[in-house]
Computed example of a mutant assay.
Amino acid sequence: MRKKPQWVQISLVAVLVFPIVYLTRETRYWYLDKVGRWHLEGSNGIWDLYIPTLFLLLQFGCYFAYVNFRENERKLKIEGELRQAALKSELAAIKAQLNPHFLYNVFNTINASLPAGSEDTRELVSGLSDLFRYQLRASRTELVPLREEMEFVTGYLDLEYARFGDRLRVSIDVPQELLERKVPPMLLQPLVENSIKHGLASLVEGGEISISIFEKGDKIHFRVADTGVGAKDKQAMFGAGVGLTNTKLRLEKMYGSVLEILDNAPQGLIVQFSL
């Protein structure tokens, strides 16, 4: 049963104490008269009302004071725990920003120290540095233009292409008019990475990644499809990889969106969501 607010409890006590004391006195007086015992009479009988009423009000006053004391202690404890949690979250956020910033500077140092004739390696290091720079920026903002998010994804795919070569084929379909729409950062890349790592990497012939974004109704729909090995237990995928699991939780908790995993034809998977 839901506990009544304290002001309701105090009001009930204030309203009921006197009638209860009065009925108790009258019942007691009736019994004493019946057995022939003495009790206060006339105006003196007021003391049998005043003293019990005062005693009960003092008791309830002490009770409510104790309840308020315990409630304030509980609130102070919760506030202290929340302050500690907020401080830990703030420190974690600072660390999350420092790590990409540190790596970004290290990559620039490595790039500058590469000997002449290492242009391919230099471009890879530069591309990786750009990815970390975007990640650092994304950690400080809630929304970015879709154009920047797609540049980040294509930069990541360029690095993967250097690894897979012709085994990796990419198809991107994003209407020009959507490129300036604001979207949450770092949502697509974990899905693309998951498709490559768990879908295509084990195939000798490789496969294709298709990214399509389109507007329907009042929502923007995101779709990442691959022609990889697929998965029988799709729910188990959310516990296998950090990126996919975190993206699912992020969509659910922050944006109220569901991350769906479907079978692709003739093989592979489709991962999609809408905002």
Rank of each mutant, 00 (worst) to 15 (best):
S195E: 04
S195G: 05
L179E: 12
S171K: 15
P184C: 12
Q176P: 00
P184L: 12
M186F: 13
R169A: 06
V192N: 02
E180N: 15
P190H: 04
L179F: 10
L187S: 02
S195W: 02
H198F: 13
I172M: 09
K182T: 09
S171Q: 14
I172H: 07
K182R: 14
L178S: 06
P175L: 00
K182I: 10
L188A: 05
G165Q: 06
N194E: 06
V170Y: 05
P175M: 09
L191K: 04
V192L: 03
L187K: 01
R167N: 08
D173I: 12
L188T: 02
L168N: 00
S195D: 05
P185R: 01
E193A: 09
I196W: 01
P190L: 03
H198I: 06
D166T: 00
S171C: 11
I172Q: 05
R169Y: 08
Q176L: 14
P190F: 06
L187D: 04
M186C: 10
K197Y: 12
G165T: 02
S171V: 10
Q189W: 02
K197W: 10
E177N: 15
L179Q: 13
P185H: 04
V174S: 08
V192K: 03
P175K: 11
P175E: 00
S171A: 13
L179D: 04
V183F: 06
R169P: 00
R181M: 09
L188N: 03
P175T: 00
V192S: 02
E177P: 06
P185V: 03
R169Q: 15
Q176Y: 15
P190A: 04
Q176R: 15
D173R: 15
K197E: 09
G165N: 02
R181V: 11
K182G: 11
P184T: 13
Q189A: 12
K197L: 07
V170G: 04
I196G: 02
M186A: 09
S171T: 10
D173Y: 13
V174T: 09
Q176M: 12
E193C: 08
P185C: 05
R169N: 12
V174M: 09
R167H: 07
L168G: 01
E177Q: 15
R181K: 15
K197Q: 12
D166N: 08
P185A: 04
M186R: 03
I196V: 02
P184G: 12
V174W: 08
V183R: 03
Q189S: 13
N194F: 08
L191C: 06
R167F: 03
V183T: 05
E180K: 12
D166S: 13
E177F: 08
I172P: 03
D173H: 11
R167C: 06
V192Y: 01
S195R: 02
L188I: 13
S195P: 00
Q189M: 11
E177W: 07
G165H: 01
M186K: 05
D173F: 12
V174F: 13
I172S: 07
L191Y: 03
E177S: 14
P190E: 05
L187M: 15
S171F: 14
P175R: 09
R169C: 08
V174D: 10
L191D: 02
P185Q: 01
S171I: 12
V192C: 05
L191I: 11
P185F: 06
E193R: 07
L188C: 01
P185N: 05
L178F: 10
H198S: 10
R167I: 01
P185I: 02
L168K: 05
V183I: 14
R181P: 00
Q176G: 04
V170A: 07
N194Y: 07
